[in-house]
Design a protein around this nucleic acid. Structure first.
Length: 451
DNA sequence: GCGTCTTTCGG
DNA sequence: CGAAAGACG
């Protein structure tokens, strides 16, 4: 009776799951394995919000496997040691895993390859699981990865995606010991408005999004109070949802909204192919600009806690704390404020986002931060998003700020964006700080340091 | 066929 | 400003 191991990583689903599918094709029984990896914990990638979401994902994956006659096998420890242990216990001849792009993922793959070779076991690494188009599948004329999105997107759009593969009807799992499913961390450490994780929730969300939301995406994706984005990012990050399936189904829907949404999915692939080619840019500048970042503890704390005195910045930061998620327009604007106005190192912001974001993804997070900081692939590194212009454009009625800053909720219309302009007696009644930095001074900091 | 120059255009 | 693609030599 042949056995194969499926090592689940960021692909916690049974639908359109090429790793599981390949294992089932080649073996009569499979071990669906997830390892709660000590290495991930050591690297600081086990923030409570993502651990809570992950607990949901594993519960849902186990449920999906049980519906098919199987179950999830959970182990804890070093991922390579645990895979080898399960291979020995089950007599598996082959291990399947999805390709990853971070240094952590590629090192894991190399270590697995070496350890399994010694154990006489094969390793199959599968593409087009985490992204729709695999990193390296399309390259520019003279290089190994695209550095500009537009030409990348042209090629990406012409690339034929693999077909969606059906969820298996039955999954036969050998009798092996498993750790219990993990619990969510204590509620006090988790954002109260965190979404529910797992494949069932992901599929429900995608279906709802395609039925109602995607058609107005092009017009409304930047509307802060409208909150009309897909909210699929955490499901894509943990692989509860296949990006290939998301692209196929969005294209099937058609229209300008679907096109704009697919374009965002291509951004995900773009960042993954950059990081795959240059794994070091997760923490070092893609294009060093000679920045001499400032590091004022009080300013950084004010940014983190949403008390910079710029209401739209603070509203977005409070949304992050409350939901473990932030509107994309908010992400761009708070990142620009930290790196261009306060002139603080993008790594400080990227770390904070990774600590809280339920979709915190190394490729997308780090490269979008570098885009904001001007150290990334962007060819206009001097771009500064003015928080007041952003507020007027994307929260014209002030409703987004009103939702997240109750202390300003009584201010009417767009007056909410400039509380410092209130008559002194009204201003004095507010428990809201004055701006911690003048925008003109912020511009100077940046201009002086960059030369 | 391959470096380099030119044009275009950009989150 | 700089990446990409096509022209040019």
């Amino acid at each position: 009776m042949s056995v194969a191991v499926v090592l689940f990583t960021s692909d916690l689903r049974v639908h359109d799951q090429p790793v599981l599918r390949a294992a089932l094709r080649g073996a009569e029984r499979v071990v669906p394995l997830f390892v709660r990896d000590d290495g991930v914990r050591a690297a600081g990638f086990d923030a409570p919000n993502r651990l809570a979401f992950l607990a949901d994902c594993l519960g849902a994956l186990d449920a999906g496997l049980r519906q098919r006659g199987g179950r999830l096998i959970l182990r804890t420890g070093d991922v390579v040691d645990e895979v080898c242990r399960v291979v020995r216990e089950s007599g598996a001849r082959r291990v399947h895993v999805a390709a990853g792009v971070s240094r952590y993922a590629t090192t894991r793959e190399e270590r697995l390859r070496t350890a399994l070779r010694e154990a006489g076991c094969a390793l199959d690494v599968h593409d087009a699981v985490m992204t729709a188009v695999p990193p390296g599948a399309i390259t520019p004329a003279g290089g190994d990865a695209f550095a500009v999105f537009t030409p990348y997107f042209r090629r990406w759009s012409e690339t034929r995606l693999r077909e969606v593969c059906a969820a298996p009807r039955t999954v036969r799992v050998p009798d092996l010991a498993s750790d219990p499913l993990p619990e969510r961390p204590d509620a006090e450490h988790v954002s109260p408005g965190l979404p529910e994780g797992g494949e069932a929730a992901a599929r429900k969300r995608l279906t709802a999004w395609l039925a109602d939301g995607i058609e107005s995406y092009e017009d409304r994706h930047d509307d802060l109070p409208g909150d009309a984005t897909s909210r699929l990012s955490p499901y894509l990050h943990f692989g509860c949802l296949s990006p290939v399936e998301a692209v196929h189904r969005a294209r099937g829907k058609g229209g300008a909204g679907a096109e704009a949404f697919v374009r965002q999915l291509a951004w995900r692939d773009f960042h993954h192919q950059v990081l795959a080619a240059r794994p070091e840019v997760s923490w070092s500048d893609y294009r060093p600009r000679g920045d001499a970042w400032r590091s004022d503890r009080e300013e950084i704390a004010a940014w983190r806690e949403g008390r910079t005195g710029y209401p739209v910045v603070d509203a977005a930061m409070r949304q992050l704390a409350h939901e473990g998620w932030m509107h994309n327009r908010g992400r761009l604007l708070v990142a620009s404020f930290l790196t261009k106005t306060l002139y603080v190192d993008w790594r400080v912001g990227a770390r904070h986002f990774l600590d809280l974001l339920v979709d915190g993804d190394l490729a997308n997070n780090q490269l979008n931060w570098q885009w904001a900081a001007g150290t990334g692939t962007d060819t206009r590194p001097g771009r500064v998003l003015n928080p007041l212009t952003q507020a007027t454009r994307f929260d014209p009625g002030g409703d987004y700020v009103r939702r997240w800053l109750p202390e300003l909720a009584e201010l009417p219309g767009n007056k909410i964006h400039r509380p410092w302009l209130l008559p002194p007696e009204d201003r004095a009644r507010l428990t809201y700080p004055d701006p911690i930095v003048d925008l003109a001074e912020g511009r100077d900091r940046f201009a002086r340091a960059r030369g």
